[in-house]
Nucleic acid binder design. Sequence first.
DNA 1: GGAATGCTCCACCTTTGGATGGAGGATGCC
DNA 2: GGCATCCTCCATCCAAAGGTGGAGCATTCC
Lengths: 223, 223
Amino acid sequence: MESDPENALIAGGDEIRLLLVDDHAVVRRGLQMVLSLEPDLNVVGEAGDGREALARVADLRPHVVLMDLLMPVMNGVDATRAIKRDHPEIEVVALTSVLEDRLVIDAVEAGASGYLLKETGPEVLCAAIRAAHRGQVHLDPKARRRLVRELRTPEMRESLTARETETLRLVAKGLSNRDIAERLEVSEVTVKTHVSNILSKLAVQSRTQAALFALKEGLVGLE
Amino acid sequence: MESDPENALIAGGDEIRLLLVDDHAVVRRGLQMVLSLEPDLNVVGEAGDGREALARVADLRPHVVLMDLLMPVMNGVDATRAIKRDHPEIEVVALTSVLEDRLVIDAVEAGASGYLLKETGPEVLCAAIRAAHRGQVHLDPKARRRLVRELRTPEMRESLTARETETLRLVAKGLSNRDIAERLEVSEVTVKTHVSNILSKLAVQSRTQAALFALKEGLVGLE
DNA sequence: GGAATGCTCCACCTTTGGATGGAGGATGCC
DNA sequence: GGCATCCTCCATCCAAAGGTGGAGCATTCC
């Protein structure tokens, strides 16, 4: 570990100053514990919401901010945006328990240099912090997949076949697989096959999300 | 049976002339079989789609039309509307295998005097035909429930509590119960309780339908 | 002090949804 | 002909969703 030239370099007085932002004291505690084991990572402060985070950032001038996204008062996305606006040199790593498409997109768009799930292990967490400090972007693999997906323009999405489109249309009307099967006069397994392919092609996780997609795309109207 | 004064009356030369409309020959066959056992019910013709039905109606002047709603060329709802426009005295009984809200509403609104599921037994079927002939409306109990529901104005729907509304909002964004639980910081069982109550209050059958409802009501936007 | 309502949680259970991997027939393209 | 794509169907399996009937606790309202 100490043979790592990079660690040796930054251990020489160039430690990383961290600010923890999370509305749960226990989470901050846990992070403290984990990070205290790393000589080069130095937690210089905490904040319980976005507004507090802004004040701390101005005071403490951390190198990297570990930012929870779902918080009262001011959410992490807005806080990230504000921090990057006022202090572009400070890196923000988003850290949340929920993997939600919009959240990933918004966070990255707001200027986050990383997106981690709270379930990720200490090694990954530390690696992401150091990467951020070097100006690199480190996304959780899951988050990256979501993001890449979203950035693909609609026409880049694998196109649905005629039958799949028909199926999606009925999904978006709220029908169950059984109903769709009767409607299309095929077996329910066939419908499940179609739905499964639809979900995979649209890169969504549930029929409800597929329905929302169909509405967004104007495939069906809202009545 | 022949002690029934009403049957005796119409058996005296006043039989009910029926037109069967369904795109499946086997279904028409089956109906033929069932109805041939009833002396007062006389099938005078068949049609395989809505357009054909219109022609047959003009020719054969049936008293009652048994109309499938899902057909190629011209669907049963449009056919019903056309029949009631040109021949208001002819009664139409909708007969379908799918119980779908919009279909029930559209059929009744188009002028159908009945709505039956194909799974209903012969007795109910015959009773519905005779009721229609007498000018009475006979809906399948399930269909009636759906209709009554729909006719309740939105303000008559049981109102959602604050927490339920919050939950519905997240359902309508495509989140799973687990995601919602994390988001609201409650257990997944609690979310399931809320969702269950939401479905029951809104009188819908799935979270996807609940999501569509929320969108219609403007509870959430489409991004 | 009740009574009612809302929020949270639980256990138990059934149904639905969804993933995976495979298969055959139909069609059309090279 | 061979190849690819699509549509259909199947079995199996696991996870998610949803129903039912409870329960404790806090609040408010009478």
